[in-house]
Structure formats: structure tokens, C-alpha cells
Design a protein around this nucleic acid. Sequence first.
DNA 1: AAAATTTTTTCAAACGTTTGCATTCAATAT
DNA 2: ATATTGAATGCAAACGTTTGAAAAAATTTT
Lengths: 343, 343
Amino acid sequence: MNSARPVTIKDIARRFRCSPSTVSRALNDHPAINEDTRKNIQEYAREVGYQRNEVSLSLLNKKTASLGVVVPTISNYYETAVIDGLHTTLQPMGYTLNICVTNENYALEKEYLSKLLSNRTEGIFLSVSQETYNSGYYEHLEHVIQRKTPLIFIDREYEDFETSRATVDDYHGAFAAVEHLISIGYKHIAHLKGPNGLTVSEQRFKGYADCLKKYDMAVREEFIINTNFNVESAIVPTKRLLDMATPPDAIFGVNDQVAIGAMRVVKQKGLRIPQDVGLIGFDNSPISAYTFPSLTTVNRPGRKIGMEASRLFLNQVNGAEDFKHESIVLPSELIIRESSLRI
Amino acid sequence: MNSARPVTIKDIARRFRCSPSTVSRALNDHPAINEDTRKNIQEYAREVGYQRNEVSLSLLNKKTASLGVVVPTISNYYETAVIDGLHTTLQPMGYTLNICVTNENYALEKEYLSKLLSNRTEGIFLSVSQETYNSGYYEHLEHVIQRKTPLIFIDREYEDFETSRATVDDYHGAFAAVEHLISIGYKHIAHLKGPNGLTVSEQRFKGYADCLKKYDMAVREEFIINTNFNVESAIVPTKRLLDMATPPDAIFGVNDQVAIGAMRVVKQKGLRIPQDVGLIGFDNSPISAYTFPSLTTVNRPGRKIGMEASRLFLNQVNGAEDFKHESIVLPSELIIRESSLRI
DNA sequence: AAAATTTTTTCAAACGTTTGCATTCAATAT
DNA sequence: ATATTGAATGCAAACGTTTGAAAAAATTTT
């Protein structure tokens, strides 16, 4: 009985022996439609479960009300917090989010952007993949801009694109973290860095290095080891650090995962945190409050970033004549917990 | 120069003084098109950055290649793992995922489902919201089914709908957890239950209760307290448990968050885990491995659920004549860590 | 050179909806 | 009775693309 084919305005028109235009107007409460006709049509439409075909409307109006969100991963707390923030602002406005996960892969990123454009997405939030960043290819991004589709960078960004951006102040966050360690009295502070080249990695590293310099402490090459953002990638580097002739007495991890990896190794060595080794992470992921000892970290307001990014997008589409791209930099905030509180 | 208006097939046709059909065929490598014409058109299309308007195609073919994912939240590890699984299977097949977050809200859930149908989504993955579950309203679900849009239930499910489902075996997971506590020697096992009415809560509770019964242990009313799945909601209930005249010597939390909340309270009381109080969670969230002590838990394969759900969906759309709805129940697996290992 | 064949291109309809303009019909004013 | 108004409805085009069938153009065969 209930056919799979959705009932259309034409079906209703046929039923009432009137034209599709009349049905359309009736359903939209157009004033020029006779009260009775309107009521009959609306009632019948409800009965048969008529639902406007938004696809046809999209074609007609060239408005799709859909937005692309292109991120390297959604397995981390931070990324989902950002998406949550985007959601919070944009879904009540009727926008639909298309989430694309690139797995840090350039080819996928390119494909998804192209697909989003083909689908006439009205805006794209992008956190560029690591591979893209390394490769230096960015025609796929230029293409988006050429098409005048609003493009909002999130966190990882290209310096020289005319777009809006929302990022966290990684530099000062890292700086504050290291300054805190110094104030506690730690003298030999190592850094488990993120992958080279990524803004996030480099900014945090810069904050670390600049802070050491400010306090006339050496920035020692061998105290800076790369990781890949996850727990496992911190294991070997931490072991190397602790096995040195003069090992560090504090470690600043590029994120919480890495710090937690380091924490495991430090404990296994029988060293105490924070007495023997101080430890700081970055992100304030939910887990950081519940490790033992609890992890000092830097808060990274993902949800807020998402909401700010939404705001930037809305600014652009409701664009006044004098619209200017903005670069929002949200402050990061040091959260002091047990892992750095040597007394 | 670069107009915002995307270049269409008609633009190209005008440029070559030919008909849109020719352009269309040329771009699609139709054999009936002259080799030169084809090459010229394709080259020009590339130059001007032509991109097929998929919206018009969707209208024409009644295929949108987009799928709805409706979940109560994306702030938890489990939900994102599911989405990740859906992604992994479906994105390579060209599907686009529209993520909708209901915040456990019935009105929102209804609105999103309706919107997804309006957008002619080809399938919907749904984890029903708590409010929906409680309210017992489900016309919005019937509407989806009426429209013959494949509907796949994830985890939280209505028993009496003709759809496919993918769930984790909560019952046996909970049973195994409690059995493990008993085998260790714990005698008074409390349960921090999830919200009443939800399948997840009830199944885990049932596993807990049945296991106690099997070993002739009392199922004590006062040992079963509701929480709301998050850390905070476990604080007061745990305090209440520990303040009892004869407090429990083990606590089974409905999920890791709740167990972690309990862990905090237990530690604050100066009690030792697992010596004084044994503790088990559920979900095997990444955090559970890094608490102190590390948390015994039950693995809940979110990613696999997503992939299984995708498979169920694909079965339905590639539907053979003899297609039958399936209910996949993935096994859960006890992960023994420190919080329950009293020796 | 005409007919037959093959190759290439165009026409027109379709997908579902909206909307400016024209049309129809009834009611009122002259 | 006829012109004038007003209300209610229909027509046709538009959005961008594909596709079967028809037409046109080029080529081959007689």
C-alpha cells in the first residue's frame, strides 16, 4: 500500500484536479489561495505524509543548507569537541553537517573537498591533513576559494590563504606550561614534540623553546624528540630520555596522549611523579583529570573553537560589504594538577 | 574574473556552440561523441574547473548517496567509534554521512528524521534518544519505515520494529564482569545503574542481577542506584553506598565514566582499590587503561558495530529478493585490569 | 548521383518545486 | 447590459543534468 515512492506535489494536484502551483501555494500558506482549497490540500498532504523534496529546492534556489567538515580524525576528544561546537551553533540554523575524515591523507582530503563542492556545500570547515601539510600541495584549497565557497581553517592552517581561521593559542599555552615547570624548580625540561611541520607541533615547540631562552636555560637538541601524537609513540622517546647520562627532570608532552605514554614509562622505571620527574600535557582531555597522578595540562577549548568557527562562517555568508576575514585565536589555559606539583 | 557562479554544462555548450547533451556525453566519455569534440570539451572543462552539479543529478536519479546518522551525543568515545566504523565502510563507497546529534531530546530527534527524509537520505542509522525511549512515541520512526528508507538501529532499540539492528551483547558482558568479581572473592557487589528504561541500562542490570542469582547472592535493592552515564552522576550514589552500615566491597558501574566517578569517591574515603573495594566499568574507553589503578572493564567494539551496521544497510539496499532483517549482536569481552585484582 | 549506411549531434522530456505573469471566473459598480 | 474590479487558479520557465529517439551530417556503397 504505502508505496516507496514519496508523494509529490503533482500527485496531490492530480488528486484535487488542480495545478501543482496551487498545491505549492496552498502548502506554503500563500494568501491568494482560497481558504477551503488550502485547508483541504494541507489536510490531505498531512494524511499521505507528504514531505517537500528538498533536493529539488536546492537545485532551484542554489541553496543546500549543508556544510562540510573535513578533519584528519574523529577518534580524539578534541576533534569531536570541535564538531560538537559546530553542531551546537549551526544545527539550530538548519544547517546539515557532512563529516569527512581524511586519516591525514592528502588524496582523500582532495577527493572530499571536490565532492563537497560537487554537492554544492555552502561552506567548508577544514583542518588540513598532515600529508597535505607536508606535501605543500594546495590547488584543492584554491579551488574551493575560487568557487567562493567559504572556507574556514581550524587549527592547522596555511599561513597564506585568504580565509578565516579559528585556532587555539598554542604558543602561549606551551610557554605557560614550561614557565610553570621552571617556577616549580625543574631545571632540565625535555619536550616530546609532535610531527615536524604541523603548526600545532611547531607553535608548541616554539613556546617551549622561547620560554627556556627567556630563563637562560639551554635548548638542548637531544631533549627534543618527535612523537606522533599518540600514546605508543611516546614510549621509546621517553625511554631514551630517561636513559641519558643526565636525564631530564621534567617532560612537556605535545599533548595528553604523549604525556600519558611518558607517564607509563616513568612509573615503570620506578621514578616518582612529580618528585623525580615533572610531567605536563596539552589538550585537557577528559582522561587527564583521572590519570594517577592527575596530569597538569593546557586547556584547549575545542567546543568553543567550533562555535567560533561557526560564527566566522556566518559572518561571511551574511557578509556585509565590508566583510573582512578574521583570525580568531582563543587563549589556552594552564590547568595545574598533581603531575607537576613537586613541593 | 572567477565568478562565484559555478560553470555549468550549458556554459560549456554555449562556448562550443553545441547542445548541452553533447557536452554531457563528451564529459562522460560516451562512445557516440567525436573524438576531437570530446577532447576539446574535456580539456576546456578542466581549464574552467567544471564540476558536475550533483544536486541536479540527485533530483534526476532520485539517488543522493547520503546517509543520516542520528545519535544522542558525540561527546563519548563509544559513539565516535561507531561513527568511525560507519565511515570506514561507507565513505569508500561514495556515501556521505550527515551526523545529527539529538542530545537525548525527542523533539530534535523527530525533527532530524523528518529533515533527513526531506533531504531524501538513502538510509538512517539511529540510536534512539533517551527521551524518545521514555516517551514511547514512535510515529516518527514509523514514518521512516513507511517511506521504505532503510533504518538501522544501533544499540538502543525498539523491540518491535521491522528493522536491522547492531548491538553489543551487554547482558553477557555484565554477567561476565560480575562473575569475575565473585570469582575473586567479592561478596557484596553494588551496581551503579544507567537511566531506567534504556536497553543498555536494563541489559547490563539484568546481567548483573542474573549473575548474582546464579551464585545465590542477594540482589539488594539498596545496592542498585541510578546514574546518568557521566562521571558526576556517580559521585553522590557512590557516597551513599560507602556510607551504608554494611557497604559493598565491589562496585559494577554501568560504564567507565561512572566507574571513574566511583573511583574518585572511593579514593577520597581513603579506601584502597582493589583491596577494600573492587571496581569494574563498561566500554573499555581509552581512559580506562590509564586510570590509577587501571580499570577492569568490558570491551564494547564501537568501531565494529559501525562496520556491522554498514553491512546490514548495504545488504538491505543491494537487497536480494529474499532479504531478511538481521539483528547482529557482537560479543563483549571482559578486560581484566588492576581495579578488580585483589590477591 | 542517388541510395544506404554510419557517425555525430540535437530535441525534448524528466526529476520536484517555486514564482511572475496571464488567465479565468464571479461579483460589484456603472 | 457592460465595464471594472477582485479573487482564485493556471501557465510556463527555471534550476542542471541525463538519455532515448529523431535528425542531421558525413561517409560508404550501389
